[in-house]
Simulated assay, not measured.
Amino acid sequence: MAELIRISQGLADALARWLEHLRAIDGAAGATLTAYQRDVQGFLAFMTEHQGESLGEAALARLRVTDMRAWMAHERARGVSARSLARALSAVKNFAGWMAERDGFDATAILAARAPKYRRRLPRPLSEDAAKAVIGTVELQSDEPWIAARDTAVITLLYGCGLRISEALGLTADVLPMGDSLRIRGKGGKERMVPVLPAAREAVRAYVDLCPIQLAPGAPLFRGKRGGALNPRLIAKAMERTRMQLGLPASATPHALRHSFATHLLSAGGDLRAIQELLGHASLATTQAYTAVDTARLMEVYQSAHPRA
C-alpha cells in the first residue's frame, strides 16, 4: 500500500481500472493480476523516487529512455533476474499502452524500452518409453491399493490429456462416469474440451472402484487419505519416488508429463494449433515452447507439407 500512496490518486485509479480491465475483458487469473500489480507498483514507486516528485500521468509522460534504463539497472542491482525483469517490463508496457489508447497518453519512452536478454529455459519432456514407465511404476509407491490407483489415475490424466496438475485435482465427481471428453476450466477461467483416452478412463474407474471415500457430486474427485481434496504435493512426492526408482532426471516432474503430451503429439504429426487448443494456451508461442522438436523434425514437416511444384 505504501507504493500506492507515493503516486497520484489519478494514477492509482488508472492502475486499478487497468487491472479490472485485464480481469473482466482478458480473463486474467488472480495470480497474474497480483504479479502485474506488484510489478507496476514497483515501477511507479521507483520513478517517484527517481523523479523526486509525486508521480502523476503528466510526469509519467515525461519519462525518457534513460529513466527506463535507470529503473532496469536498479532492479538488476537488487538481484532481480533478467527473466523477472523482462516480465515486469512487459507489465509496465501493457499498462502504459492501455493508458495511451484510453487517454492519449504519450508512452513512447516506456514502449521503446528494450527488455534484457535471457536464455529461455526450455521444458524437458520425457521420452515416450519413460512416460509409459512412469505410469506403470507410480502405483508401486504406495502400499494402499486405493492410493496407488489414485496416483496412477492422476498421472495418466496429466500425460494422456495434457492437464495441468491444478486442472486434474480440480475435477469433481460430476465427471463420473468419465466419458470420451472432459470440459476443463483452465487459467483465467477459460474452458476447453479435451479427449479422454480409454487408458485414462480405465485408470479413473479403477481408482473410483477402490476409493473408500464417498465421491458425492460437486465434491473433489481425487481425495487425500483423510478424505479432503488431494494435495498436489502428494502427487509430486509420488512422482519423485517414481523417477528415482526409474533413474530419471529431476526434470521428470508432474508438469513434465504435460510437456510430454504436447511433444509426443507433435512428433506423431499433430497440428500445432490443435495442440494449442488441447493445452488451453492463449498464445501459440507458449505451445511452441512446450514442444521439444528438433530442426530435422521441423524440416521433415516442411518438406512433406510444402506445396512445391
Score class of each variant (00 low, 15 high):
103 D>H: 14
127 S>E: 14
251 S>F: 01
12 A>W: 01
41 Q>R: 15
104 G>R: 08
240 E>A: 15
55 L>W: 01
238 A>F: 05
150 R>C: 02
32 T>I: 02
11 L>S: 02
58 A>K: 11
54 S>T: 15
181 S>Y: 12
274 A>L: 11
40 V>K: 00
277 E>Q: 09
155 I>G: 00
252 A>N: 00
221 L>T: 02
181 S>P: 02
178 M>Y: 07
270 G>H: 07
41 Q>S: 12
221 L>N: 03
223 R>M: 10
62 R>D: 09
232 P>Q: 15
115 A>T: 15
131 A>G: 01
236 A>H: 13
124 R>C: 04
132 K>M: 11
34 T>P: 01
20 E>Y: 10
10 G>T: 08
159 Y>A: 04
229 A>T: 15
39 D>Q: 02
97 G>L: 08
215 L>P: 00
281 H>W: 05
21 H>R: 15
224 G>Q: 03
195 P>Q: 14
109 A>K: 06
102 R>G: 07
74 H>Q: 13
78 R>L: 12
263 T>L: 06
183 R>Q: 11
68 M>D: 07
222 F>Y: 06
228 G>H: 14
68 M>V: 11
15 L>M: 09
280 G>K: 00
234 L>V: 15
206 A>R: 12
194 V>F: 04
245 Q>A: 12
38 R>K: 09
198 P>W: 10
253 T>G: 00
236 A>R: 14
45 A>Q: 04
11 L>G: 01
266 L>V: 10
156 T>L: 04
270 G>M: 09
72 M>H: 03
145 P>G: 09
197 L>V: 13
250 A>W: 03
3 E>D: 13
48 T>D: 06
108 T>Y: 08
288 Q>E: 15
205 R>H: 07
231 N>H: 15
197 L>G: 10
236 A>Y: 12
237 K>M: 13
190 K>H: 15
250 A>I: 03
167 E>M: 02
270 G>T: 08
50 H>C: 06
60 L>G: 00
106 D>L: 09
135 I>C: 03
67 D>C: 12
57 E>K: 09
284 L>F: 10
157 L>S: 06
154 V>M: 04
51 Q>D: 10
224 G>T: 03
226 R>W: 10
156 T>I: 08
203 A>R: 00
116 P>H: 13
16 A>E: 14
13 D>S: 11
153 A>S: 11
296 A>G: 14
261 F>S: 02
274 A>G: 10
304 S>A: 14
228 G>V: 14
188 G>K: 02
150 R>T: 03
87 R>M: 08
209 D>M: 13
39 D>R: 00
191 E>D: 13
240 E>M: 10
32 T>P: 01
78 R>V: 09
118 Y>R: 13
209 D>H: 12
153 A>P: 04
53 E>Y: 11
121 R>N: 11
145 P>I: 11
109 A>H: 08
163 L>V: 05
214 Q>Y: 05
33 L>V: 07
100 A>W: 04
301 V>C: 08
37 Q>T: 06
90 S>E: 05
262 A>S: 09
244 M>L: 15
223 R>E: 05
41 Q>D: 09
8 S>M: 01
243 R>F: 03
23 R>V: 11
172 T>M: 08
35 A>M: 07
